[in-house]
């Protein structure tokens, strides 16, 4: 069941049960009351230890949270860490040289300023600079993170990026793959990286994803089809 909820509203939770708070909620330390802080869908899930409640909402600016997969741009380099931007104008985050697979004092990563990097948020405290890592910290092994070479980054809303990453039935990538081969990385900070063998196919992917943000799911096929057709037409006309 989904109810829309706005800041200042009452939550529809069972106050007797132990409750875990997710995004979009605020526990007032003075009044000891819980209230929603964002406009969105109230989601209550029952778990073993009680209930989890959060507000599902879409926005444009990313605020780091532990465990999120993100795409960042290296904007600075220090003696033991990189400074990485997850979205323009936001406070930058830290990527330590030691947060790479097989890193040691001597074996330093070779990323440059301007490079794109796929990483995981490993520390996020609101008072401190967030930290990201390029390895699976439980095993210390490579986990598909690291430098993203070439390709293009598409800025989308955070909600759309989450759909792409977590919604297994979301058809966008499936349809795209029927037109071209591509590599993709999805950051929940609203950045999607796409790379195809050929520039024109990447261009078509870029335009498709941007347009699909504004159309309904059932229209995806036609939108993508028309973009790939345009690419072929443009090449033919030249």
């Amino acid at each position: 069941m989904s109810t829309l909820i706005f800041p200042g509203d009452q939550l529809n939770i069972d106050s007797e049960q132990p409750t875990t708070l997710g995004p979009g909620l605020y526990f007032d330390p003075v009044t000891q009351e819980i209230g929603p802080t964002n406009a969105g869908v109230e989601v209550i899930a029952n778990t073993k230890r009680g209930q989890t409640v959060y507000v599902d909402y879409d926005s444009k600016r990313y605020i780091p949270a532990v465990g999120d997969y993100v795409i960042g741009i290296i904007v600075g380099q220090f003696s033991d860490s990189y400074k990485v931007s997850l979205s323009s104008f936001s406070s930058s985050v830290t990527l330590s040289y030691m947060a790479f697979p097989n890193a040691s004092k001597k074996n330093k990563p070779t990323l440059k300023v301007g490079d794109l990097v796929y990483a995981r948020v490993c520390a996020a405290e609101k008072e401190l600079e967030a930290e990201i890592e390029c390895l699976d910290s439980t095993t210390g092994q490579d986990a598909g993170f690291g430098l993203l070479e070439g390709g293009i980054v598409i800025d989308v809303t955070l909600g759309f990026a989450r759909h792409l990453l977590f919604d297994k039935d979301f058809p966008l990538l499936k349809i795209l793959s029927s037109f071209t081969q591509f590599e993709v990385a999805i950051g929940v900070n609203g950045k999607i990286w796409v790379k195809c063998e050929e520039v024109k196919n990447t261009l078509a992917c870029y335009r498709s994803i941007i347009d699909c943000q504004k159309t309904s799911v059932s229209e995806y096929k036609n939108t993508i089809k028309s973009h790939f057709k345009n690419i072929v037409d443009a090449a033919g006309g030249k």
Binding site: S2, F6, A39, V41, Y57, I175, V217, S218
Partner: peptide
């Protein structure tokens, strides 16, 4: 204002809803 915002959020949900028999 609430009704307007609610309509907007609902719109968004409907748009990104995956239709089981659609694709």
């Amino acid at each position: 204002m609430r009704n307007f915002l609610a309509a907007k959020i609902t719109d968004e949900i409907v748009r990104t809803k995956v239709n089981d028999n659609g694709n």
